[in-house]
Design a protein around this nucleic acid. Structure first.
Length: 802
RNA sequence: GCGGAUGUGGCGGAACGGCAGACGCAGCAGACUCAAAAUCUGCCGGUGGCAACAUCGUGUGGGUUCAAAUCCCACCAUCCGCACCA
């Protein structure tokens, strides 16, 4: 028996593809941009989980090639980052060296996938020719007022010794290392992502992304509509502005609460309350986020001052509490305990009056058991608003308040500006010079890239300065505007900087005049399909969308959204846990490839389960795919070129195969594509045994269909059946539905919904014939009295007795 | 607490409201072998039965329907996201 020598076959075809690429840009085909989230070149290398995503995108890319497209399918390296830097701290070796080594290893591993990556497009975020443009974008943002400096308390990771963005803090801990995040007052570079909040939210709708990801982003942006209302502080000229989404409940506001960090907080204290207030403010300032989040019970302190509710003139006490966030809205809220559960809890605890202003049926309750938070009901206890519908008033109140001159309409976002500077070494230097006379000045564009200098110590200082601050000859420079001596910015950019725009660079990666030519941007972008893990749902994907919108505004590109379609592949887990070096459950693809071949591993990666679901890895399962490939090879080698005739039965199978595979592939059901190949190969084998062989037409069809999944054996089969050029020069076939018709079909016979028999009927048979035949088949099982006969053409008959 | 996803044999998983368990792994039996590997054939949810067959069975409890893994309601478990955003 002919043994399938996958090693030789795979080697042979890789060499051929090298010489004559299968994905050619002839300028006439339409483009299809299929992108992987580029990897961080870690020292551990790839595991089978990484492979899965790359296989999925490669299958899709090869399918697009067969559909006649020119496919942009590039790969690169997101190579700035902490592991390389930490390794450098330990060894004293420049992080660029270990990075380069890791890239070489991972490139080698990725080449084992045999994906159709265009390696001429390769990029590396740590390459000065690349980060020149990362810096260029920053300069453009600076010039457009979107990059600004600010001294503020930021999230600080004491372990990484650097500031973090809001997005990088997960449950109060550092997204990277898990250390508890603290606050630190630092001068920071910020990006004004909030200027794009509306567009980032509204444009989500147009994207073909998983609903889950869209939802996560929209909640992260968190837009809400309402009003700002001014409360005068009784007996002073001060006023406190609050933000509320429920201005309809204004008459029910019986107290105000300010964040302890509010600028009036200590000024509001009276002589009697001074000690308690100062004490509360101090305690709040020292508590960590985690501490504050774990708080179940509300705390607070009365300031001793009162404010005047502007709609009814009532005096309401002003409290401080840390459940009010200083950096959202105005840092102060009006509290309507009857209609907000947090205010209710606070009012109960501190014995503050609760005034109901909305009643579901127009009748007030004797005593509220809990806050009624719906905006549905009739206004009561609300002066001129009495009798109005709360749902309507909720929408109209901002305008009414504005007309009365006691506040204004307002919308708010949860999204905060992006803390963009890091106090670490291994990142892009921020291209800014600080001049005592001119202030912050951008490094002129013709002087970019501003390259990362060598340092003696990579260790972060922990003082809020990056290691670059220690290099005097680098720090001391002259002002690009006035020429006087000045100092360079020593902070670096976060890792997200390079990944927020990399998809733009691939098609024009050697352009030394522009980030990308507008012509190429128009021709090759945006990305049609983006494949990667769901862990970037907010971070990377939000930042990349923001960058794209900015680049559109300055005319670099002509589109608003970088990624039209997004696919999140499920994680591969082992013993129920994510693969990691520390858990010791990493399965490397290297041995599997040498033992079973690339085609087998590719197919097995898909066969493990639905591509968007997590899947448990089990090495032994790959045997099944390997056996299938062996079987397929044997079928082909025993029959190819024998001149067997294409029989009607075989042609039916052939067309059904085309139909099923196409449908499953289009709907991204890649696991059932693989099982479909197995199923049909079994059937074709059986039929071949019965009729004495398989024809070349059928074998050719299989090789075209299987080409995206197992490209090597596909080429080999194509060649065996007489193909002279690559199978990828073929077109994806269309099924002939007429040829799929069976002469007879098997129908199920049910009595009262239970299967009681089966029968074969001619496809063309009419309803009456089928029912008569069913009754005959049932014989004495037929119920005496028949209530109903259900006939589902081509499927079943259900006879329902009385 | 809120929101989302998932729950089917020993295992991974199939199944436009229409034969539950396709396909594969593991297992069992047989063929070929001196033997093993490879390969091939058959069996492979539970219970009862020699068998034909019957009966139960898709997390739990209800419901809709001639017919429910699939639709509806309530609940349980696991995973993920958000978490005082006023």
């Amino acid at each position: 028996m002919a043994k399938y020598n996958y090693t030789a076959v795979e080697k042979k075809w890789r060499a051929k593809w090298e010489v004559s690429p299968i994905n050619v840009n002839d300028g006439k085909k339409s483009k299809y941009y299929c992108l992987d989230m580029f990897p961080y070149p870690s020292g551990t290398g790839l595991h089978v989980g990484h492979w899965r995503g790359y296989v999925i995108s490669d299958v899709w890319s090869r399918y697009q090639i067969l559909k006649g497209n020119y496919v942009i399918h590039p790969m690169g390296w997101d190579a700035f980052g902490l592991p390389a830097e930490n390794f450098a701290i330990k060894t004293g070796q420049h992080p660029g060296i270990s990075t380069e080594k890791n890239i070489d290893n991972i490139r080698r591993q990725i080449k084992e996938i045999a994906a159709v990556y265009d390696w001429d497009m390769e990029i590396n975020t740590t390459d000065p020719d690349y980060y020149r443009w990362t810096q260029w974008i920053f300069v453009q943002m600076f010039k457009n007022g979107l990059a600004y400096e600010k001294e503020m308390p930021i999230n600080w990771c004491p372990s990484c010794k650097t500031g973090l963005s809001n997005e990088e803090v997960v449950d109060g801990s550092c997204e990277r290392c898990g250390a508890e995040v603290t606050k630190k007052n630092l001068r920071q570079w910020m990006l004004k992502i909030t200027a794009y909040a509306d567009r980032l939210l509204d444009d989500l709708e147009s994207l073909e992304w998983p609903e889950k990801v869209k939802k996560m982003q929209s909640e992260w942006i968190g837009r809400s509509y309402g009003a700002e209302v001014d409360f005068n502080v009784d007996g002073t000229d001060d006023k406190i502005t609050v933000f509320t989404t429920r201005p309809d409940t204004l008459h029910g506001a019986t107290f105000l609460v300010l964040a302890p960090e509010h600028k009036l907080a200590s000024a509001l204290a009276s002589d009697e309350t001074k000690t308690a207030v100062e004490d509360y403010i101090y305690k709040a300032s020292t508590r960590s986020n985690i501490d504050r989040m774990q708080d179940k019970e509300k705390t607070g302190v009365f300031t001793g001052s009162y404010a005047i509710n502007p709609v009814n003139g009532k005096k309401v006490p002003i409290w401080l509490s840390d459940y009010v966030l200083a950096d959202y809205g105005t840092g102060a809220i009006m509290c309507v305990p009857a209609h907000d559960s947090r205010d209710f809890e606070f009012a109960k605890k501190f014995d503050i009056p609760i005034v109901q202003v909305i009643a579901k049926d127009g009748e007030p309750a004797d005593e509220l058991e809990e806050a009624y938070t719906e905006a549905e009901g009739i206004l009561i206890n609300s002066g001129e608003w009495n009798g109005m519908e709360s749902s309507r008033l909720k929408v109209e109140a901002p305008d009414i308040i504005e007309k009365k001159g006691i506040g204004k309409k307002r919308k708010n976002f949860k999204l905060r500006d992006w803390v963009f500077s890091r106090q670490r070494y291994w990142g892009e230097p921020i291209p800014i010079v600080h001049c005592p006379d001119c202030g912050a000045v951008a490094v002129p564009e013709d002087q970019l890239p501003l390259t990362l200098p060598d340092v003696e110590k990579y260790e972060p200082t922990g003082t809020g300065e990056s290691p670059l601050a220690a290099i005097e000859e680098w720090v001391n420079t002259t002002c690009p505007e006035c020429g006087k001596s000045a100092k360079r910015e020593t902070n670096t950019m976060p890792q997200w900087a390079g990944s927020s725009w990399y998809f733009l660079r691939y098609p024009d990666n050697k352009n030394d005049k522009e980030i990308i030519s507008r012509e190429k941007a128009d021709k090759y972008l945006p990305v049609d399909m983006y494949v990667g893990g769901v862990e970037h749902a907010v971070l990377h994907l939000l930042y990349a969308r923001f960058y794209t919108k900015f680049l559109k505004d300055i005319g670099v590109v002509g589109f608003d959204e970088p990624f039209i379609r997004l696919f999140n592949q499920g994680m591969i887990v082992k013993e129920g846990a994510k693969m990691s070096k520390s858990k010791g459950n990493v399965v490397s693809p290297d041995e599997l490839v040498s033992e079973y071949g690339c085609d087998s591993l590719r197919m097995y990666e898909l066969f493990v389960g639905p591509p968007d679901m997590d899947a448990e890895w089990d090495d032994s399962g790959i045997d099944g795919v390997f056996r299938f490939i062996t079987k397929l090879y044997r079928l082909c080698s025993e029959n190819a070129g024998k001149g067997n005739e294409l029989t009607k039965d075989m042609n039916r199978l052939r067309n059904k195969l085309i139909y099923d595979i196409s449908q499953r592939l289009e709907s991204f059901s890649l696991n059932t594509v693989i099982s479909g190949f197995m199923e049909y190969t079994n059937k074709i084998n059986d039929l071949a045994a019965k009729q004495g062989g398989v024809d070349d037409e059928t074998l050719k069809t299989i090789s075209v269909l299987i080409a995206p999944f197992a490209p090597h054996i596909a080429e080999e089969m194509w060649e065996m059946t007489g193909g002279e050029e690559s199978v990828f020069k073929e077109s994806w076939p269309a099924a002939d539905e007429a040829a799929m018709e069976e002469d007879s079909i098997e129908m199920v016979i049910q009595i009262n919904g239970k299967v009681r028999g089966k029968m074969s009927v001619p496809t063309a048979a009419a309803k009456d014939e089928v029912i008569a035949l069913a009754k005959e088949t049932l014989g004495d099982k037929l119920p005496g009295e028949i209530n109903k006969e259900i006939y589902v053409p081509g499927k079943l008959i259900n006879i329902v007795g009385l």
